[in-house]
């Protein structure tokens, strides 16, 4: 089995991994912010409901959640299963929104009340205060924990092979069963490593970009 054939096959799988990564990121970030607001709501039932859901999502393995989203509909009300990739995406978005929400909440709550009050006495609206004053300070504060979580997401995409989504680990394992080759599996690690390396550089760049002020 030639190196280039293996590379192309793994690239196919890695494309799927990247798809999960980017779609999860794009959907879970805004959803996480929404969940963060719900968990800080002054309306107690909403706050408790949100906190309970976040507890369940963070308290159970992502692998189990993927399995439940994929097999659950068929078992519970005999509905059709979602397509494999879609099921994986649903589980990933919910799971990561829960984690992101806690990072957002921590970031938002770390901004001093004085910043809100300064905006208020200057006649700003609530949304002006949030978007013009608070948000960028929150972003600066949460870049380190976010980069941690996002780098974890890159590698967590491999969990989707539990429902046979053809991501890179799945493709690599196929070489074991079909050709008794183990090295493609080891080789797949290089793809993750390079991708995470690029992300690390991006986050470092972002941190530098935001270093012009202190919070």
């Amino acid at each position: 089995m030639s190196f280039s054939v293996v590379t192309f096959k793994l690239l196919d799988g890695f494309t799927i991994s990247c798809t999960i990564f980017f779609i999860t990121l794009v959907l879970a970030l805004p959803l996480g912010l929404l969940v963060a607001f719900c968990s800080m709501s002054r309306f107690t039932p909403l706050r408790w409901l949100t906190k309970t859901l976040v507890w369940i999502i963070r308290g159970t393995p992502l692998m189990l959640q993927i399995i439940i989203v994929f097999y659950g509909p068929g078992l519970i009300w005999e509905g059709d299963s979602l397509p494999r990739l879609t099921a994986a995406l649903v589980a990933f978005v919910i799971n990561y929104a829960a984690y992101f929400s806690e990072i957002f909440r921590g970031g938002i709550e770390s901004i001093s009340r004085g910043q809100y009050e300064a905006g208020q006495v200057l006649g700003m609206t609530k949304s002006q205060i949030f978007f013009k004053i608070i948000l960028l300070q929150v972003v600066k504060r949460i870049v380190p924990p976010m980069s941690n979580e996002i780098i974890t997401l890159v590698k967590d995409t491999s969990l989707s092979n539990v429902i046979a989504v053809r991501e890179i680990i799945m493709e690599a394992q196929a070489f074991i069963s079909t050709y008794a080759l183990i090295w493609p599996l080891f080789y797949s690690g290089v793809f993750y490593l390079v991708f995470c390396g690029i992300l690390t550089l991006l986050f470092r760049y972002l941190e530098n970009k935001l270093s012009y002020f202190k919070v």
């Binding site: 001093s112 004085g114 910043q115 009050e117 300064a118 905006g119 208020q120 006495v121 200057l122 006649g123 700003m124 609206t125 013009k132 004053i133 960028l136 300070q137 600066k140 002020f213 202190k214 919070v215």
Partner: peptide
């Protein structure tokens, strides 16, 4: 929100907006 504009307030802990320059702090509102 409108009535507040009758008053200005200078805080004990300044509460300047850290991400803006001195000038922008003054002009933003």
């Amino acid at each position: 929100r409108k009535k507040r504009l009758h008053f200005g307030l200078v805080f004990q802990s300044f509460n300047l907006f850290p991400q803006y320059t001195a000038l922008k702090n003054v002009t933003l509102a």
